[in-house]
Computed example of a mutant assay.
Amino acid sequence: MNTGTTETFPNTRRTILIAEDEDSNYLLLYTILSKFCNLKRAKTGKEAITLFEEGGIDLILMDIKMPEMTGIEALVEIRKTDKTIPIVMQSAYAFDVDMEYARNAGASDFITKPINQKVLKSTISNYCPDIEWQVK
């Protein structure tokens, strides 16, 4: 029997972890995504692993080149415990060898910088189709 307590409903917005060390690149992603998703930021690969381990992440956007630990190294570590979370690698240095290594390490997808807003949203929608890209 409910005695007057109010029910709370979980936040239904998806949470995206953005692993990006460059402030300007993060700001662009924040500007595009913050109206539609909850965002968490990691500036290093190690920080990305820590935030992922805290839980509640639906998708990871992972820069390849970061300090302390590269995005690919962080990808390998995350894949040891979670084979299914979508991890989209991003890089301005889109060498075929990097993309191949990222795919072999378990990357879900790959986008290049500079970020194209349409490509970014389309890629995210492949893994989180319930995100509505229209502001209500």
Rank of each mutant, 00 (worst) to 15 (best):
M1H: 11
N2R: 14
G4L: 05
T5A: 11
T5H: 08
E7C: 01
T8N: 05
F9E: 12
P10I: 06
N11K: 14
T12G: 06
R13S: 04
R14A: 15
L17F: 12
A19M: 03
A19K: 07
E22P: 00
E22W: 00
D23R: 00
Y26L: 02
Y30E: 14
Y30C: 04
I32D: 03
K35D: 15
C37T: 15
K40H: 13
K43G: 03
T44A: 01
T44G: 02
T44S: 11
G45K: 03
K46A: 02
K46P: 00
K46T: 07
A48H: 05
I49Q: 07
T50K: 12
G55Q: 04
G55M: 04
I57K: 10
I60S: 09
L61H: 05
D63Y: 02
D63H: 14
I64N: 05
M66A: 09
M66L: 12
T70N: 02
I72S: 00
E73K: 05
E77I: 09
I78P: 04
R79Q: 08
T81E: 06
T81N: 10
K83M: 10
K83N: 13
I85K: 07
I87G: 13
M89A: 13
A92D: 03
A94K: 07
F95S: 02
V97C: 03
V97N: 11
D98K: 14
E100N: 10
E100H: 07
E100T: 10
Y101I: 14
A102V: 02
A102W: 05
R103S: 09
N104C: 08
N104V: 01
G106R: 11
A107D: 12
D109Q: 09
I111P: 07
K113I: 01
P114T: 04
P114C: 06
P114I: 05
I115V: 15
N116C: 12
V119W: 04
I124Y: 11
N126M: 13
Y127D: 05
C128N: 11
C128Q: 14
C128D: 09
C128Y: 06
D130Q: 13
D130A: 13
E132A: 06
E132T: 08
W133T: 02
W133R: 03
Q134L: 07
